[in-house]
């Protein structure tokens, strides 16, 4: 098999054991974001997710500071991710408060919360840089993501979380679909729309936080937006769309992680996002439900019939 292209070798899981685990972990993450993203998109929460993702930075930094202060390693995953989740929740609540209680519109609420939280994270990072402790460099990977140096346990944790997310979506599938297409109808029939919206937001939070390690907080939102946008071109049926979106997310993350594994100087998050974007472009043209080609053929047949 020595004559195989290195990328093919990695894709076919012939790279080292660690790389394989990491790529599968990435694929699980991509599947989870693709699945959750469908409902985030349908409920128009895509850009809220962007703000929430950026808002994890101060949490990661505070987690680092707390871990060091308590004598743990600054790279302790549970401290970093708990901190990330905490400030992300705070950001989500802030956006809701601003949009509901002031006359500022939701886009202004999202943008100002995103900017302020992220900026606070940056200030904390500059403080950390002056601390006399090791491990600062480890924080960098949470910005743009990296698979290099990822531990097997981390990858397995990610995969478990991803599976849990997929299970929750499967359990709530009927309710989530209903509020996505007709929230008023759902409300009239006694479905807890607010609670279900909250569930979507919670799932977004979970995938964002577990995605920080691989894709990074600047670009993780792309995995919530781009695969669902691509999936819409393949099916109008929500169930099929969710499956396609999960598959596109998984493939993007898997393929991106593979490219990043074989070539130096390729930030994992950026490559994954670009793969997803190419799949979106391809879906726009070739998608069987509403792709440009299908629509063009449909329009021609219509003219001929007339």
């Amino acid at each position: 098999m020595a004559e195989l292209h290195p990328l093919l070798q990695v894709l076919l899981l012939q790279a080292g054991y660690n790389t394989i685990v990491v790529m599968l972990g990435a694929a699980a993450l991509g599947a989870a974001t693709g699945v959750v993203g469908v409902f985030a998109m349908l409920r128009r929460r895509a850009l809220v997710a962007d703000a929430v993702a950026h808002a994890t930075l101060p949490g990661v930094a505070l987690g680092f500071i707390l871990a060091v202060a308590l004598g743990f390693s600054g790279r302790n995953l549970s401290f970093l991710l708990s901190g990330a989740a905490l400030t992300a929740v705070l950001a989500a609540l802030s956006i809701q408060w601003i949009a509901n209680r002031t006359r500022l519109t939701e886009d202004t609420a999202i943008a100002s919360v995103l900017a302020t939280f992220f900026a606070f994270g940056i200030v904390l990072l500059t403080v950390i840089q002056t601390l006399k402790t090791g491990g600062q460099a480890g924080l960098d990977i949470y910005l743009l993501g990296a698979t290099a140096g990822m531990l097997r346990e981390e990858a397995i944790t990610l995969a478990l979380f991803a599976i849990a997310v997929a299970l929750i979506v499967a359990l709530l599938f009927k309710e989530l679909t209903l509020i996505s297409f007709d929230a008023d109808y759902a409300r009239a029939h006694g479905f807890p729309v607010r609670l279900l919206d909250l569930a979507i937001l919670a799932l977004v939070l979970v995938v964002v936080v577990i995605g920080l390690r691989i894709v990074g907080l600047v670009l993780i939102v792309a995995l919530l937006i781009t695969p669902p946008a691509a999936a819409r071109f393949w099916s109008d049926h929500t169930g099929r769309m969710t499956v396609v979106s999960g598959a596109i997310g998984a493939f993007s993350a898997y393929f991106g992680a593979a490219i990043s594994a074989i070539s130096p100087d390729t930030p994992t998050g950026a490559v994954i996002v670009l793969v997803a974007f190419f799949l979106l472009l391809a879906s726009i043209v070739f998608g069987t439900a509403r792709g440009l080609l299908v629509r063009a053929i449909g329009a021609r047949n219509l003219r001929r019939a007339a």
Binding site: A46, L47, D50, L144, V218, L219, V221, A222, I225, T226, A229, T266, P267, G269, A270, V271, V273, L274, A276, F277, L280
Partner: peptide, 14 residues
């Protein structure tokens, strides 16, 4: 908007 600006930024980083 979201898919375009993330892809452009990813391209820039790469």
């Amino acid at each position: 908007l979201g898919s375009v600006f993330t892809a452009m930024f990813a391209l820039g980083v790469l």
